[in-house]
Amino acid sequence: MSDLLETDGERLLTAVRALLQRKGVVTEEEIAERRAATDNASPGQGARMVAKAWLDPAYRELMLSDGTKAAEALGIPMRGMPPLGVLENAPKLHHLVVCTLCSCYPRAVLGYPPFWYKSAAYRARAVRDPRALLASEWKTVIPDDVTLRVVDSTADYRWMVLPMRPAGTEGWDEARLTAIVREGDMIGVTIPSV
């Protein structure tokens, strides 16, 4: 069997799909539907949640107490998804999310995990030397008087960061705020700025 598993991935996929389809286990339509649903999730969804939390204290409360409900409140599909937890940054506390065991990622609200998130280097360095990692790879400097809390996503929850609203955005509306929130801000490798 081991030789079979060493077959090139593309050939394995083609063969496995053909077999599953012939046996009626999985249809091509089901795969296409699933793919479309996954392709639809993107960091723009998480960004909408962040912007709304910046403007609406009640929504922020909901987001911090139940991320799944907060996502659903904005029409983001969460059925069948792992529970979403939200980690709030503060003037003296910065969060950074990693999955050292595999690549658990809040896909429902951020989409597919980026390449770097899945890399061995990120997974190794994020827990052990996060300040140097952020400074060297993202030019993100966490001041010494700010506690850095690394969140290793090891089990059933998925975690996203609620960053602090940057100065200079006073009076901005939700759409304008949404546009400045990037993928990395919601994992903690970057900080929103204007």
Partner: peptide, 16 residues
């Protein structure tokens, strides 16, 4: 865990 770095940093983990 790793004594070599800044002491007030934390790691938060889901554990059964």
């Amino acid at each position: 865990i790793w004594p070599e770095r800044k002491p007030d940093d934390e790691i938060l983990i889901e554990i059964f």
